[in-house]
Computed example of a mutant assay.
Amino acid sequence: MITAEERIIRSEKIKEYEVYLMEQEKSLSTIRKYIQDIKRMYKYFEEKELSKILLIEWKKLLAESYSASSVNTILAAANGFLEYNGWVDLKIKPLKIQKNIFCDEKKELSKNEYFRLIKTAEKLNNKRLSLIIQTICATGIRVSELSYITVEAVYKGKAEINNKGKRRIIFIPVKLCKILKIYIKRQSISKGCIFITKSGKPIDRSNIWREMKNLCEESGVKSEKVFPHNLRHLFAKIYYSEEKDLSRLADILGHTNINTTRIYTMESGSVHLRQLDKMNLVIT
């Protein structure tokens, strides 16, 4: 029989759950986010016995302070923790979010803007950044997967990605291989990761993010459009517009759920409006 003590969040329970997530081979970023959200939950409830009513009230307070998607992320972490502890009856439903079929045009990076970022990086003599931008966008990899672009991978023309417990092969375009080989020789990189710091460590995503933001003013591209993951979105949109193969695109991007891939291929409202105009169904 479950006692009040067993339904109280304690720090040792959080530590046990963190170990469990590691054993499940969750990514470090996922584990950090889950534990952060559970600690937020722990701070709110303190030593109170958990109940469905209290959890629903907490959910309402979250909804007043965060966006619906952020609330659902927090609830996902909370529900995972509740289930781990055997408190399945306390799990709470996520907020219902109406599906958005259009992307935010203000954050949509165009192919022309992408080329302007590359040219600006070259103009500022930041060859490494220019190649990082091109590598992410030409292969569709995540910025966290950049370390898999090694000397060996470039000479093979493909890289084996092992991320989030999944393995996949990504091919490196011939033109990209050519310019990466030139960079490798000039930087005297004999093996391993290509994009490294002066100390020889793989460049951190925060550094890439910051360097990309520094291109905004010179390139004339709005800051809200310039971040590494947007390059992956641009790859997906261009690939889908050419091939119209959502299943294949999901495999390339490393998505388990094809609905995740659909998000990457959403068009802006203005594109949809142009498509409607092309249908020519209104008599003038």
Rank of each mutant, 00 (worst) to 15 (best):
N112K: 15
L176K: 09
Y183H: 11
S69C: 09
Q187D: 06
V151A: 00
A63W: 00
S27E: 01
G140H: 00
L129M: 01
L180K: 05
E25I: 12
Y264Q: 06
T150V: 05
D277V: 15
N163G: 06
L129I: 10
I8Q: 04
L55A: 07
K237T: 08
S110R: 05
H272T: 15
L176N: 06
L276Y: 10
L146R: 08
Y183T: 03
K178V: 00
I2C: 07
L117Y: 06
C103V: 15
K107M: 04
I252R: 05
T30I: 01
F102W: 11
E49Q: 13
L62N: 09
K175M: 13
L281F: 10
T284K: 15
I132C: 06
K244H: 13
L90S: 05
N257E: 14
K15G: 00
N72H: 02
K201W: 12
Q36L: 14
N162T: 12
I56A: 04
E23A: 14
M22T: 08
P228Y: 05
Q24W: 01
H233M: 04
E243H: 14
L273A: 14
R248H: 11
L276P: 08
G140L: 09
G200E: 05
S27M: 01
E49D: 09
I97R: 07
S147R: 14
H229E: 08
S270C: 00
K191Q: 13
Y239T: 06
W87D: 09
N162S: 14
I208C: 00
I196L: 10
G165C: 05
K156R: 13
E242V: 10
G165S: 03
V19H: 10
I9V: 14
I97W: 07
W87R: 11
E211I: 02
M41T: 03
I38L: 05
Y183I: 04
N126T: 04
R128C: 00
Y155V: 08
G86R: 09
K181A: 03
K213F: 10
E108A: 12
E105V: 10
E12H: 13
R32G: 00
L246T: 03
S199V: 12
Y114W: 08
V174D: 15
I258H: 08
R142H: 02
I101C: 02
I161R: 03
I101P: 04
N79I: 09
L50F: 05
N207Y: 14
Y264M: 11
N214Q: 13
R116K: 14
F171Q: 01
T120Q: 13
E152K: 00
K225T: 03
R274M: 15
E160H: 12
L50G: 04
K213T: 06
T197P: 05
L176Y: 11
I136V: 12
I53G: 01
S268I: 10
